[in-house]
Amino acid sequence: MTEKMRLAFKYKLRPNRKQEQAMRNFSGCCRFAYNALLAQEKEAYQEYLEELESRLCWGEALSFEEAKALCVKPKLNQYTFNYALKKLKEEYPFVKYY
């Protein structure tokens, strides 16, 4: 019976105050960008649901499936997020540096 040797390495960061502040700023910008983009996606999805409901109410579709076929669902992929991030950087200049 052969035994497998498992190797692991542990690293400990010891930043100085300036580096620590830079790491906190970076993580704060990441958190802000993620939350802002998530809020935009939630808003787009709510608009999609409202459009579905309005198409059903106005009689444009007879069933929920027909209404879904008529509406355009917001796409969630890396390209839309990159585009939204570009707009976010223009709107909030402090995100631009990270």
Rank of each mutant, 00 (worst) to 15 (best):
N82L: 15
Y79F: 13
E41A: 01
S54K: 15
N25L: 14
N16Q: 05
K10H: 07
A33I: 00
E51D: 04
Y34V: 05
A8W: 03
F32G: 13
Y79W: 10
L85C: 07
K4H: 09
Q78Y: 12
L88H: 00
A61T: 00
S27A: 09
E43Q: 02
A69D: 13
Y97W: 12
S63G: 13
Q40P: 03
Y11T: 04
G28M: 11
E20H: 14
A61W: 04
E66A: 07
Y48K: 03
K73Q: 05
M1W: 07
L56V: 00
E91L: 06
E65R: 05
F32S: 06
C57Y: 12
Q40G: 09
E50M: 06
P93G: 05
G28D: 13
E50Y: 04
E51V: 04
P74Y: 01
A33D: 09
L70D: 02
E90D: 07
N82I: 13
E66M: 13
L76C: 12
A22E: 06
A39I: 00
K96H: 14
P93W: 12
C30Q: 14
K73D: 02
Q78E: 15
L88V: 01
K12A: 01
Y34E: 03
Y97D: 11
M5P: 03
E65A: 12
K73A: 14
F94R: 07
R24E: 12
Y98V: 12
L13P: 01
F26M: 07
M23D: 05
Y45G: 11
L70F: 03
E47T: 13
M1N: 11
G59P: 02
N35T: 07
K86T: 09
E90C: 01
F94H: 00
L37F: 02
A69N: 10
Q19Y: 03
N82T: 04
Q46K: 04
R6K: 11
N25P: 03
K96E: 14
A44Q: 08
A8R: 06
E20V: 01
T2K: 12
Q46L: 07
R6M: 14
Y98C: 05
A44E: 06
F94G: 07
F64S: 13
W58S: 14
G28T: 11
L62N: 15
Q19F: 09
L52W: 00
K73Y: 11
K75N: 06
N25A: 11
L52Q: 04
L37V: 04
K86Q: 12
P93V: 05
Q19H: 05
V95P: 00
F81R: 03
E50R: 10
N35E: 10
K4M: 10
L70E: 01
C29E: 06
A44K: 07
W58K: 15
